[in-house]
Write a protein that binds this DNA or RNA. Structure first.
Lengths: 275, 275
DNA sequence: ATTGACTCTCAAGCAACTTGAGGGTGTAGG
DNA sequence: CCTACACCCTCAAGTTGCTTGAGAGTCAAT
């Protein structure tokens, strides 16, 4: 019979942890002096404690361990729990790899510019969104602004005529597979609040698909410098091993036609997959 | 200006998290209505939030992020923080690999025996230990018991004559590089409580070295079945890619000469390194 | 009898939020 | 103008696997 301190030295588990395991019922002392409350452990409890530690080392929670140790589960159930844990662990490892890649890419960029990067790319999941959209083609890059203005006027007018309510933000979708600077296929989309709206020749209601992995970057200021954001996101995607797998979008989070361009906020989104 | 719910939909961060970031001072709303307490955010706060999320994705704590965002650290300091985090992450990944290996080994064993393994191997760190030791050679496996009994008698007698106090448990050290079944080099060691004890011809005070990685397994019951524990630990070490790099030990955690063998508890320890 | 090492039982703290209770706001429809 | 109803607020407590600390009792030796 060992007192808790001696047992702790024996198994190299802190006294506080032993008391905690007692409280959870994971490892009750063989005997507890009812007068003093002192816990007494015996060496024959070490196998159980070791199994506990082994399972903990595999990443199981104490609650799961309790079930493994006490409820007499069938071997099949136990195998199942471990298999699940295995998959979980593998996912965690992959995430860790991704994290590490991110940090490396950041450090690299840091070396180049010797300062914090101006743009931060994050990956998020976006839900599908029902919008009213007008498509059009801008003959050249420098006609893109006016073209879009026209398209958005059409959508906004249409939604207003239907008596529906526009929902921020307005979204530009770039449907070209490759970046080209002439004959750019774009869609001007605005989300609305209404059950169904009839399509017209020009305006269609479509569902912008959702994506599990959407790379996103925020640009603040004039559209004239938007290309910097595009450069940043492209570089990042390459460095982190992602590939674009769908049409990109621009969300006008803060925008007013003819307003102060320095106040504009635009989000650029690229649906991506791991290369 | 967005209310918290709209802003939350925009950036895909839960409302509760936004409130939490406000509380920590990580992302204060642009305006808080002093009458109602309503938080109002603007789109121009998204870059900061995105940087926050990007850093969080790299595994930094919110406290670290706060320092990165607010205290204007030199680029060098920032680089340093990320480098440290990088190393941390790499270590975590390695640990994860090890965990995964453990779980796989367990599952494999499970397939073979179709039940939970009888022995759980754990890796722990043991500190150096000052002991009094007598070395001897057992001519053959079946003489090991009596040989050790004699050696332990010598050590115990010596310690008693010196007026020192024995400290549990008694330890057998196996000094042979390879397992052989004749002429086995063993040491019978017992830790004691005293500043210094003089060496004699037979009894030496030595320091059993500490090891960062000690593979340990607990055997319960007669010494006759101890080989099963050895088999289990050997298999485990092979499956998990460890190599023995020092003399093994047996710790008699529960033992009484001539006592009920079924009550014995013995710990087997192998110092190891990753192969 | 006293010292010093040990033990006990709470309670609180860590990180990064989430959940819920209890109560005030904002606005659209009747 | 009143009433839903969705939204917002604050504050407290829960999550995991313990650790740390306060305040008090216990054990063995001197």
């Amino acid at each position: 019979m060992f007192r808790i301190g001696d047992f702790s030295r024996l198994c190299l588990v802190p006294v506080s942890a032993l008391r905690y395991y007692d409280e959870l019922g994971l490892l009750k002392p063989t005997r507890v002096d009812s007068a003093t409350g002192y816990r007494y452990y015996s060496a024959s409890q070490l196998p159980r404690l070791n199994r506990l530690l082994a399972l903990k080392d595999m990443g199981l929670s104490l609650e799961q361990i309790a079930r493994l140790l006490d409820d007499n589960l069938t071997p099949e159930q136990i195998r199942g729990m471990l298999k699940i844990k295995q998959v979980e662990l593998q996912q965690q490892l992959e995430e860790g790899q991704i994290r590490l890649g991110r940090i490396e890419a950041w450090l690299e960029q840091f070396e180049q510019e010797n300062n914090m990067p101006d743009y931060d790319v994050i990956i998020k999941k976006v839900a599908p969104l029902r919008v009213a959209e007008v498509r059009g083609v801008a003959p050249a890059m420098d006609k893109l602004g006016p073209t879009l203005d026209g398209l958005f006027d059409e959508v906004m007018g249409y939604i207003a005529r239907q008596g529906a309510k526009m929902v921020e933000p307005s979204i530009t979708v770039y449907y070209d597979q490759e970046m080209c600077d002439r004959d750019i296929n774009v869609g001007a989309s605005i989300s609305y609040e209404a059950s169904t709206l009839p399509d017209t020749d020009r305006v269609k209601t479509v569902e912008l698909p959702g994506f599990d992995k959407m790379a996103s970057v925020i640009h603040r200021g004039s559209f004239a410098t938007l290309h910097q954001a595009y450069e940043a996101i492209s570089k990042w995607l390459e460095a982190n091993g992602y590939r674009v797998n769908g049409p990109s979008r621009e969300l006008n989070l803060e925008y007013e036609r003819g307003g102060d361009q320095s106040k504009f906020v635009t989000e650029i989104q690229f649906p991506v997959e791991k290369a």
